[in-house]
Design a protein around this nucleic acid. Structure first.
Length: 297
DNA sequence: TCCTAAATAT
DNA sequence: GATATTTAGG
């Protein structure tokens, strides 16, 4: 769940008080995010309604999340899971570490029937080169950390692409349907580019055996959707995607991950779980961000 | 505007 | 070298 980095600053100061608080608090999963959209993203996209009202409550969100994270980080005596507070290496620009908060997710069985977990990307900006009061426009785009396409995220991506049809699967639409907070169109575009490449390869080598190049892609069943999904000239009626109705935001917040070691995923669990929802598996979080070097480009 | 391919960066 | 981001052309 929402691992937060800056909690390291408060590390272990108030464990006692925290445990008192947590007694009456609902679990993080039960909380409805403030960013709760009123209509389903499918519907929204069907009618060209912007799914994200662009609330200006981002600060509030962040604040409450921080609080939650802090609490979460300190509790766990009841679970067998050991939450370790993580200290991060900020000094080294090339170093990052994976912090996966394992979340007990009891409702995995139905795969989408129950309450979908809220998902979002928690970006973290290290040093923010804040605007030196330039022209005054709030244009200062904080450099996002490197997005890591976790199996969950990719699965969502594939689902959306599949149901859109390969034709109308364009970055913007995909991004909207995925409804992952913080996920940019460029993120999707980039991934889509790679995904298309992958599909092409697979198509060319349809009788290719085990060694499919990408562990991520090969793990996700590729839909036979080289066909168009939407009738031409029709209004984009949202299709009943596998994802359940309130597919709110993906909740995700994981930092770091050493470069180049992504392929270290256990391929066996891939095959086992390829049709299941990934939540609850060892992949506690949906996506992760890699720490970005303070280097400016 | 935005999609896609290519270049660049990590 | 793989992945993700950024740039450039349409």
């Amino acid at each position: 769940m929402g691992e937060e980095v800056n909690m390291s600053e408060y590390g272990g100061v108030d464990d006692d008080r925290v445990s008192d608080w947590e007694l009456g608090l609902p679990s993080a999963d039960d909380l409805t995010p403030l960013s709760h959209p009123l209509i389903s993203p499918e519907l929204a996209s069907a009618f060209s309604i912007s799914p994200e009202p662009r609330r200006s409550m981002t600060d509030v969100n962040r604040a409450s999340r921080n609080t939650l994270s802090s609490i979460r980080g300190e509790l766990s005596p009841s679970d067998g899971v050991a939450f370790k507070s993580f200290d991060e290496e900020r000094g080294k620009d090339k170093d990052g570490m994976v912090v996966e908060g394992e979340e007990s997710d009891p409702d995995v069985a139905g795969d989408g029937s129950g309450s979908r977990k809220v998902r979002r990307i928690d970006e973290n900006c290290d040093e923010e080169m804040e605007n030196g009061n330039d022209g005054g426009s709030a244009r200062t785009q904080v450099k996002r950390a490197r997005l890591v396409w976790t199996p969950q995220l990719h699965k969502r991506f594939v689902d959306v692409v599949a149901h859109l049809g390969i034709k109308s699967a364009v970055p913007k639409t995909i991004m909207q349907l995925m409804n992952v907070e913080g996920l940019t169109r460029e993120n999707v575009a980039s991934h889509l580019q790679k995904y298309r490449l992958y599909l092409k390869r697979m198509q060319g080598l349809s009788n290719e055996g085990p060694s499919s190049s990408d562990p991520l892609f090969s793990s996700t069943p590729v839909p036979q959707s080289l066909n168009e999904a939407r009738g031409s000239g029709h209004m984009p009626m949202p299709m009943p995607i596998q994802m359940t109705h309130p597919p709110q935001m993906m909740h995700m917040a994981v930092m770091g991950m050493a470069r180049g070691s992504y392929q270290g995923y256990d391929s066996s669990s891939y095959n086992m779980l390829q049709q299941r929802d990934w939540s609850g598996s060892k992949f506690g979080s949906v996506a992760s961000y890699q720490h970005v070097t303070p280097n400016d480009k």
